[in-house]
Every structure is written in C-alpha cells, then in structure tokens.
C-alpha cells in the first residue's frame, strides 16, 4: 500500500476544491492475466510510465519566413528541450493552411528536426486540395495504431465530409477554399466514415478491455459545436466500439483551445495550436473551469503552445499545456488530469 504524503493529499484536495479535474480513481492492476489472447504488448493494465508530446494546427502558408513557421519551430524546440525527452510525438492535423504540397513539405522539414519519432494524422486544411494525396506522400497512412509500454495508441482521420463539390462543379482549389472556412455552411459535418469504423472495430477486437487506450483525432469525439465542425459525426459509433475498455484518453486538435470533457469511460481534451487561438463558441461547457483566458491580440504567441502527456503506471494521465505566453489559469497550468 503506497502512502500518500500530506503534501500530495493537500494537492489533491486543492484540485478537488477547485471543482475541476478529478476524474475518479481506477482500480489497480494485477487481475489482468487472463484472456490476453494474442495481444502480447498492450494486454496488461500496468503501464510502464512514460511521457509523450503533442503538437498540432500549425497552418503553414506557402510564404517564406511566415510567422507560423517560427511558431511550429518553437514548438519543436520546446519538445527537444524537454528533460527527459518524451518517448515520441503525436501531431493532430492541420500542418498546412491550404493543402499545398509546399506547405506540407515545409511542415515535414520542421517536424523532422524533432529528436524523436513522430506520428501524424490529417486535418481538413491538409486534405481538400488533392484529397490527401500530397499528405499521404509525406506522412503515410491517415489512420494507424501501435502499442507502446502497455498502452494501445490509435489515430484516425476524422475530417471526411460527404462530396459537396461534384454537384456544385467546384474546382479542387474552390473546394479547399470552402473547407478553409471554419463556418463553411456548404461543407457539412465530417467524420471518420464507415471504412475506418470497420477498421477500428477490427483493430480493437483482440485488445483486452483492461488495456489503456489513447485515441488521437483532429476533431473532438463529442458534439461540442457542430457549426464549426467541433464534432465528429460518427463519434457515437466510435465511442460504442471503445466502450469495452476500462479507460480511454481521447485527444484532439482543430479547436485551437483548452477544452475538456468526459463521456463515460472516455476522457477527452483539446489542444493549443501553433498558429492562432479560437474564442470559445457560445455553448455551455460541461467543465466550465477548464478553459484558457481571453487572448491578448497584441501578443502573437498568446494562446499557442506544445503539449506533454505523462502516463502513470495506473494510466492516470496528466496533460500539460506548454503555452508560449501566459493565458492559462492556474488550475489548467498545473496540468489537466485525464
């Protein structure tokens, strides 16, 4: 039995008193040696503790020395300076702004400066000029899974919309232009689509329910603000496929802001961009104290940042928003409990 020090206890009480991040305890491991099937790596409840980093939403332009290039480079440098280094880096989409080959190429050359391996999923800004052709050339599959130190990681392409361009006779450039607008009324709601749903069901079929799972998508797996595609239309199906797991940590880009929600066994958190922050849409948030403050327009780094997620042996996750400036309230700055 591990003892909790007074200081730790006080720390916990403060967190709880702030009415925020306490998401419940998780039963200790030990019982999970049955029914492991063929899944050797991930099929244990124990995590060998580690940290991974996340970057997202660089929105690079095809313009030399654009200020967003420097912000992405700053995120990369920040992660390279972490001590100890994170095991790997995840990138949650929107590397480019207009899906141009040159933007994605520039993004890859900056990300290649990371000292560790990185894995990427696409955002809508990467995709709709050539329907992901250039992106796949640089970054490979748009959905994937891997196991690391006892955790099963899943990444999916959540920005697939039904064809709105063929009937309207739009050129690829016009299609991309529409998708670049957050409030695009003609583009419709996006999701992962039936193929990826089938793939996901298959992927987790033999992964035992006590396996810690981390899911990365560009958009949130819940209906936050559908008007800005702060949603994934087939999130209910995804959540039901993942329901068998004791605990899932879901992380998403696209919203360019601090946002947290918990849906059953899923803890969900949004990320800061390295381009520009978005204001909160006019909705009541389920956890209203987990927000960033209003951005100072005179400080272009305000609202931007990189991220680190530390996972403990019992799969408690702490998400640290490593902001470039100073817009986080103290309760968020201390780290978001996932």
């Amino acid at each position: 039995m591990e003892k909790i020090s007074r200081r730790q206890f006080l720390g916990m009480s403060t967190t709880m008193a702030a009415g925020t991040l306490f998401t419940g305890t998780f039963a200790p491991t030990a019982t999970s040696f049955f029914g492991l099937g063929g899944v050797a790596e991930a099929a244990t409840k124990k995590v060998s503790p580690f940290t991974f980093a996340i970057l997202t939403d660089a929105h690079l332009y095809d313009i030399a020395d654009h200020k967003f290039d420097a912000f992405l480079a700053k995120g990369v440098a920040d992660i390279n300076a972490m001590n100890p280094l994170p095991d790997f880096v995840l990138y949650a989409g929107d590397i480019g702004q207009s899906g141009k080959d040159s933007e994605l190429k520039k993004g890859k050359s900056i990300l290649d400066k990371l000292k560790m391996k990185y894995t990427v999923i696409p955002g809508e800004h990467d995709w709709y000029l050539d329907m992901g052709k250039a992106w796949r050339g640089y970054f490979g599959d748009d959905h994937w899974s891997f196991d690391h130190k006892g955790v099963h990681f899943i990444g999916m392409n959540s920005i697939l919309v039904p064809d709105f361009w063929t009937m309207a006779g739009l050129t690829p450039l016009e299609r991309m232009g529409r998708m670049e607008e957050l409030e695009c009324h003609k583009c419709g709601a996006w999701g992962v689509g039936s193929q990826q749903l089938e793939w996901l069901a298959k992927d987790v079929k033999n992964v035992s329910p006590d396996t810690p799972v981390v899911v990365l998508t560009h958009s949130p797996l819940w209906d936050y603000y559908p008007r800005w595609n702060f949603q994934t239309s087939d999130a209910p199906e995804i959540r039901s496929i993942l329901r068998k797991f004791d605990k899932v940590i879901a992380i998403h880009g696209h919203v360019h802001q601090v946002i947290y929600n918990k849906l059953g066994n899923i803890s969900s958190a949004g990320l800061l961009s390295t381009s520009w922050p978005w204001p909160y849409p006019p909705v009541e948030l389920p956890y209203p104290t987990i927000k960033m403050n209003r951005v100072d327009p005179g400080n272009f780094e305000d609202g931007l940042g990189s991220h680190a997620v530390a996972l403990s042996q019992d799969f408690d996750g702490i998400l640290n928003y490593r902001e470039f400036a100073h817009l986080l309230p103290d309760n968020v700055r201390r780290g978001l409990k996932l």
Partner: peptide
C-alpha cells in the same frame, strides 16, 4: 501574410 479575418474570427466571433 495570407491570413484572413475569418481565420481567427469565425462568424465574426471575438
């Protein structure tokens, strides 16, 4: 620098 008002101000927000 390529940015539009709409980048940061969807629906004129903020």
């Amino acid at each position: 620098n390529g940015l539009a008002c709409g980048n940061c101000h969807p629906d004129g927000s903020a």
